[in-house]
Computed example of a mutant assay.
Amino acid sequence: MDSTLQERARATRRSLLEAAACLFAEQGYAGTSVNDISARSGRTSGSVYFHYASKEGIALAVVQDRFATWSGLAARYTDRAVPPLERLVTLSYEIARALAEDTLTRAGARLWAERDTIDAPLPDPFAQWTAAATRLLAQARAAGHLAHDVRPAATARTLVRAFFGLCTLTEALEGPHTVTERLTDWWHLTLLSLQRDSDPAQVVKKARAAATRQAARKPADSVRPAGSSGPAQVRAARD
């Protein structure tokens, strides 16, 4: 396939993915049809089926793109010059912002919540989050920053579940615009039990500033298609 056809195929997949994400976030999985995705994207329904094979396929692609992998975020939190607890808190602010503002992330979260209505296995996003949190907590323990009775793996599981519950419930009760402030309250309380020499205010202040800087540098979106079918060499540019 030549580069022009590949570029057209990528553009088509991107437009379909973004249109589907908007609809899934607004209407949910059951309330969105392939015809809706076609109309929102300006592409044909045949294009949807060619690039993603089914509505389940495009739902899976939406979840994988933002909500389940967070591959675009992970690389930012390997800087050993920044204390690990500060990196963990900064990461939480970035994820909270994405859950509140990014359409693909919001769609992924809603689809995962509605997973019982989708005839396809959706990836578990919390395993990735928990692994990342465990690594950062283990680094904090090695650096002598954790209270002596804090166990990284068990603590990470609790933190990830509590964090997601906080974001979900806050948005439901107050709207997405308050999530950052409620997260700040939560970290002030939580860090008191995590840190050996507790000074949550400084950690939270630095982490919020770092997350704000990162938000100002929005990375280019990348679309990871799933469920495409048919001989790509012949029809990949179909739209």
Rank of each mutant, 00 (worst) to 15 (best):
L159N: 00
Y49G: 07
L111E: 04
Q6S: 12
R224K: 15
T69K: 12
A133Y: 03
T168K: 05
I37C: 05
R66Y: 11
R213C: 10
L5V: 10
A210M: 09
R13Y: 07
T90E: 14
E7P: 01
S41C: 07
A154W: 00
A140R: 01
T78M: 12
A74E: 12
I95G: 00
F67T: 03
G175V: 08
C167A: 15
F126V: 09
P152H: 03
A201Q: 08
R13C: 03
T117V: 13
L136D: 00
A207V: 04
A30C: 09
A153N: 11
V34R: 02
P83F: 06
L169G: 14
S193N: 05
L60D: 00
A81S: 15
R106F: 11
R213K: 15
D2L: 07
A131P: 00
S71H: 08
A216T: 08
P225N: 04
A21I: 04
A30R: 13
A96C: 12
M1Y: 04
Q27L: 10
D119W: 06
A237N: 06
S33D: 09
K205P: 02
S41I: 05
T168C: 08
A143T: 07
R161K: 11
S45V: 11
R8I: 10
W187C: 00
Y52F: 11
V82L: 09
C22K: 12
R141A: 02
S41Y: 05
N35H: 12
S33G: 14
A107S: 10
W112M: 09
F126E: 07
R238F: 11
A9V: 07
A153H: 10
A113G: 08
E56M: 10
G57Q: 03
